[in-house]
Amino acid sequence: MPILIDSHTHFDDVSFDGDRDAAYQRARAAGVEAQVLAAVSARLWPKLRAVAARYPGLYPSYGLHPAYLAEHRPEHLDALADWVVREKPTAIGEIGLDYYLPDLDAGAQAEYFTGQLRLARRHDLPVIIHARHAVDQVIKYLRRFAGVRGVVHSFSGSEAQARRLLDLDFLLGFGGPLTYSRATRLRGLIRYLPLDGFILETDSPDQPASAHPGQRNEPAFLPEVLACVAELRGADPTEVAAATSANARRLFGIPDAVPSGSH
Results as ranks from 00 to 15, higher is better:
R143A: 13
A22Q: 15
L193H: 03
D82H: 06
D136E: 14
R49F: 05
R144F: 02
A243D: 07
L222R: 09
R250N: 07
L77P: 05
P2T: 11
I128M: 14
D21C: 01
D12S: 13
E231I: 01
D136R: 14
H130Q: 01
Y180H: 14
G63I: 10
D203N: 11
R121E: 13
V229E: 09
D203C: 07
A227N: 07
Q109N: 10
A29V: 02
S154M: 09
V148H: 07
R185H: 08
T202Q: 07
S245N: 11
H133Q: 06
L172T: 01
V36S: 01
R216C: 01
V40I: 15
L251K: 08
Y55N: 03
F221D: 03
D169E: 10
I190W: 11
E239G: 07
Q161Y: 00
D236R: 11
A110G: 13
E231M: 06
P74V: 10
Q25T: 12
Q215A: 06
P74I: 12
Y141M: 09
H123N: 07
G197P: 10
D98E: 06
D103K: 11
D17A: 15
S41V: 00
D12I: 06
D78I: 05
H263Q: 14
H10Q: 04
M1K: 15
A81D: 15
V258G: 00
R233W: 03
P177N: 06
I5G: 05
G31F: 02
D124S: 15
I3C: 11
D136C: 02
R20M: 04
S41L: 00
P46I: 14
G96W: 01
I95M: 10
Q35P: 00
V258F: 00
L117I: 00
S260W: 03
R143P: 02
R121C: 03
Y62K: 10
H76C: 01
E218I: 03
T202I: 06
A235H: 04
R149F: 05
F145L: 04
H123T: 07
F16D: 04
Y112I: 07
R149K: 15
K88Q: 13
L37R: 10
I190G: 11
A160W: 00
L64R: 14
G234R: 07
P213G: 09
G96V: 02
H65N: 13
L64P: 12
A230S: 10
I5F: 12
H133P: 00
T179Q: 05
R118H: 08
G63A: 08
L125T: 04
I129H: 14
L80K: 09
F170S: 11
H130P: 03
A235S: 09
V229T: 14
P56F: 06
D206N: 09
S41W: 00
V40F: 14
L80H: 09
F221V: 03
I95S: 13
G173N: 02
Q109G: 12
G115R: 07
R149V: 14
R233P: 05
S210Y: 01
P102F: 05
P102Q: 05
V152K: 09
A183G: 13
A52Y: 01
Q215P: 00
L189T: 13
N247R: 12
L193P: 02
E111D: 08
A134N: 09
G147T: 09
L104K: 05
G261L: 04
S158D: 12
T114F: 04
L64V: 10
Y192C: 08
A248R: 05
Y141K: 12
V258C: 00
